[in-house]
Every structure is written in C-alpha cells, then in structure tokens.
Simulated assay, not measured.
Amino acid sequence: MLLLVLVLLACVWLVTEPLRGGTPPDPDATERARLETERARLYADLAALTDETRRPDLERRAALTLRALDALPPAPRPARQTRTLALTLLGGAALLTVVGALTFVPRWQLASLDRGEAEDVQATLRLPALKAQAERSGSSAAYMNWGRAAFDSSQYDQAVTAYGNALKLNPRQPEALRRLGILLLTRGEQTGQVPSAEDAQRAALLIRTAAQLAPDEPESQLLLGFALARFGEQQAALTALERYRTLDPRGRDADDLITAIRARQNKSTPGLRVYAARCASCHGPSGAGGIGPSLRASTLSREALTQVITQGKGAMPAYPNLKGTELAALLTVLEGWQQGAARP
C-alpha cells in the first residue's frame, strides 16, 4: 500500500510539472550540439576512410568526443504545453497505477534506466535466488549463472566465490577463468590492497588460459589485453586489444587503453611514429600483416630491409626520402619484431 501511494505521488508530481512552469533551459545545449556534430563528422570520416594512417587519430578523437558527451548532464525534458494534456496524463497514470500496481510498478521503475542499468538492477535482484540454487544443486551451470549475475551487478566477492566453485567442477570454462583472473588482478581497486605476486601470476595464468581456450570470444582478448598492459607488455596488450576490436567492432571498452598505449609507444619509440605514418596501413598496426605481409615473420637482414623500404619491391612502394635517424629508428623496430618472433 505504501508503495502504491508513493507511486501515485510521484505520478502527480511528474505529470503536473508543466502546470508549475515551462521547460528549464539547457545550459549545456551549445556544447552538446557541438559534440554531437563532431561525433557525426568523425564517424563519417571513419566510414569513408581511405588513408589508414589517419585511423588511430580519428579513433582517439571519436573516443574523446564520446567521453565528453557522456560527461554532460542529461538534457532537461521538454514540458507539456497544455493544462488539458497534463490532466489527461495524470488521470491515465493514476488509473494504470491502481489497476496494474503489482505487475507494472517494477517495469516502470526499470523504464527510467538505460538498458545497461536496468540489466544490472535485474541481475542484483536475481542474486539471492541464483546463489541458493547453486548451493542447493551444486552444479557447474548453476554456479556459472550465479557468477555471471554477480559479475554483471558488480558484486565481485560473490562472483569470485561462484566462479571459483564452477571451476572446481569444470576447470575448462573460459568465462569463469578470465573473469576470476581479472578479479584477482584488480582486487586492489576494490580493497585498497596490492595483490600479491602469487595472486598476480595466478591471475595472469587464468586469463591466458581462457584466451587459449576461447581465442575468438571478444571478452577473452579484451581481458587479456588489460592484463598484459598491467604487466607492462604493451605491444602484446595492443595486439590483444586490436583483436578484441576486430571480433567486436561495436565494442568501445578498449578505446582508452589503446589510445594510451599508442601514445606511450609513439612518445618513447621514434621508430613506431615512422611505422604508424608509413607502414601500418598495409602491414597492420602491430606489424602482424594486413594487405601486406607480416613484418614480424620477416627474415630479411637490415641491409635488405633498407633496400626494400627505399627502393620498393612488387606492390610495396618506395620511400626514397626516408633516411637518416627516421630510417634507422624504423629498422630498429622491425629488427626487434623479428627477434621477438624468433623466440620460442
């Protein structure tokens, strides 16, 4: 009964708001319009891109624009224009509330949230039942359902327990492996304590194993990239994150980290700046191949590489103006990739 009264009062307040005043001004309207225009322009540029050397910069600017839009407060909702419409809505809301309170109220509450928030709320509400079912049945599937709901609703202690029990029953479950691994690795962010070296190594093993078991699952590559970046393996992390974006082109979870890694690499390694500008469009962002062959699998000597770069070969264009310190820096990067590929 109390819930019904509260819902009715909320309906009265919201629906009669137009009777109390006009639409409040949006102080961020100018900035919001500018960012939306910039977002549309960057997306159009990416869709029509012909020069792949521009892709990293365009993707970085698009990610920054999306973050800036997300940081703006929601725009004020427009008020209703007439007293008749407001009173009609009030009557309809009251009628629906009285008739369908028990079945509609939860849906109305979720309707005010975006899709992700609504799913998190629903996952949290399911947790007690899923936990009880897992403990009662003791099945791997039940523990996985509990772990998934706990992870999605940020109940990480429960997720660790659920995924740990699921792995005891079946140790070859990529989702449980990678999520348990990332939770162990990032435990310090939740508790304020730095994970021990033993926990860090165990987490890395779990995440790598998950990526080996399910290399084509986007989350495997995403979490592998995050883990590798934490261990300082920047190039390997970038490779995994690029793979994640290939598997899930709409996924944006790796944008910030990819941008940060590229910025660090280009700042610390002059040869990578040259590679990004001259070579990445054909040989891939990390030299693993694309339109052109993999440079990591190359066995050419430094002299042979110099000749191909400056004179061209086959479909490979010549870069005769690339010389001096820039050429030397690029050759050092390519030789480093060759040596890395040759390691067992």
Rank of each mutant, 00 (worst) to 15 (best):
Ser140Glu: 03
Leu322Val: 15
Gln221Asn: 06
Gln235Cys: 05
Tyr43Trp: 09
Ala263Tyr: 15
Pro128Trp: 01
Arg273Pro: 07
Leu206Trp: 03
Leu295His: 10
Gly21Met: 06
Leu330Asp: 03
Arg55Gly: 10
Val274His: 02
Gly289Glu: 10
Ala63Arg: 00
Gln109Asn: 13
Asp51Trp: 01
Leu58Glu: 10
Arg54Tyr: 14
Pro128His: 06
Asp26Asn: 03
Pro106Arg: 14
Tyr163Ser: 08
Leu223Ala: 05
Ser281Phe: 04
Gly181Ala: 03
Gln339Asp: 10
Ala159Tyr: 01
Arg179Glu: 00
Thr50Ser: 06
Cys279Gly: 04
Leu58Val: 07
Gly340Pro: 10
Leu95Ala: 15
Gly312Phe: 14
Lys131Arg: 14
Leu272Tyr: 07
Ala210Tyr: 14
Glu117Ile: 09
Gly232Ala: 15
Pro171Trp: 12
Arg252Cys: 03
Ala227Ser: 05
Val333Glu: 07
Gln155Cys: 03
Pro285Phe: 11
Leu327Arg: 12
Arg83Cys: 13
Leu180Ile: 05
Arg343Lys: 13
Thr37Ile: 04
Leu64Pro: 08
Ala71Asn: 01
Asp70Ile: 07
Gly22Arg: 02
Arg41Met: 05
Pro73Thr: 05
Ala315Val: 12
Pro317Glu: 00
Ala288Val: 03
Ala162Tyr: 01
Thr82Phe: 14
Pro73Gln: 11
Arg264Ser: 14
Pro76Asp: 10
Tyr163His: 14
Val12Cys: 15
Gln235Asp: 07
Ala10Ser: 09
Leu89Val: 07
Leu305Lys: 10
Thr209Ala: 08
Gly284Trp: 04
Leu222Glu: 07
Leu183Tyr: 11
Glu17Ser: 03
Ala342Pro: 04
Asp157Trp: 09
Thr306Cys: 12
Arg60Gly: 11
Thr30Met: 12
